[in-house]
Amino acid sequence: MQLPAHFEYQRARSVEHALALLSRHGPEARLIAGGHSLIPMMKLRLAQPELLIDINEVPELGGIEITEDEIRIGALVRHTQLLDCAEVGRSAPMLHDAERVIADPLVRNRGTVGGSVCQADPSEDLSGAFSALRAVADIAGPAGERTVPMRGFFHGPYQTAVGPDELLLRLRVPLPAPGLRTGSAYRKVSRRAGDWAVGAAGAAVTLAPDGTVAEVGIGLTALGAREFVATEAEDLLRGQRPTPEAIDAAGRAAAQHCEPVADQRGPVEYKRHLAGELTRRVLRDALARAGGR
C-alpha cells in the first residue's frame, strides 16, 4: 500500500470558512475536493500538504444551473453529475462526450469539475473542453470575487490563475444567442478505457444564418497546445464556410501550432498527426450536430 506523509485535516463549512482556513494556514494548506488527483500525489509523496481543507460539504459550491445565456457549474459538481444532466447534454454536448471518456465510474463519482481544472494537468480532458467552450471561472479570495476567462486560467502545467489563498467557485459556459445553429463535440484517443488521453480534441461551432462560421472554439488536450486551444485553426475558420477544405486547413493548422511531447503514449509525430485528425473529426461532428452539414 502506498502511504501519504502526515497531514492535518479540517472540514470547511462555507466558502468564507474555507478562505479563512486558507489564509490562516498559508501555502502549506491545500483544498481537497474529490481527492482523485491530490490523494494519489500524496500517496506517491509528490505532494505533502500539512493541512487538507475539505470542501466537500460547502453548500455554495454544488449544483448546475442553466439560464438563458449560460450554464453555471459549481466547482464541486462531480463528473457523474455533469454527465447525468440532460440539459448540459443538449446545450453543450461536448461536455458529455468528454465526461464519457474521463477515467472510470469510480473516479467520476467522486472527482469534481473544479478539481479537474484546478489540477491543470496537461491531459485533463475538461481543460480542453471548457477552453474550447470559452468558459469563464469565478474565483473567490480574501479581496472578494473575480472572474477569469478559461483562456487565461491555465498558467502552465499544474499552475492556474487561482492563488494559494483563493478558491474556484464555479465555471460558466456561455450559450450562443437563441436561434443560431450550434453544435459541439469531443473525441479522445487513449490506449485503454480509463487511461489519460494520448490526445484529444473538442470543437464548438456556431453558424451564422448564412451558413458561415460565426464563432468556433477548438480545444486540444494532452497535445501541448497553448492554453489548451488551437487559436490559429479557429482564426482560419471564423467567417468562412465550413467546407471539407476549410476543415482540412483547420486540422493542419491545429497540428502545426501545437507542441506535443513524446512519452510512452506516443512520439511527437504521431501526436501532431492526432491533433490534425481529431480536430477534423470533431469539427465534422460539431457541424453535423449544428445541422450545418
Binding site: 494520448v198 510512452q264 503514449r265 506516443g266 512520439p267 498527426h273
Partner: peptide, 22 residues
C-alpha cells in the same frame, strides 16, 4: 500495438517498444 505503434507501423516505421518512445 498501442495506437501510436499501429499508426507508426502503417507508416513503415514501427517503434522499438522496449525503449522509451522518442
Amino acid at each position: 500495438l498501442t495506437p501510436a505503434q499501429v499508426w507508426s507501423a502503417m507508416r513503415g516505421r514501427p517503434l522499438r517498444t522496449d525503449l522509451a518512445v522518442r
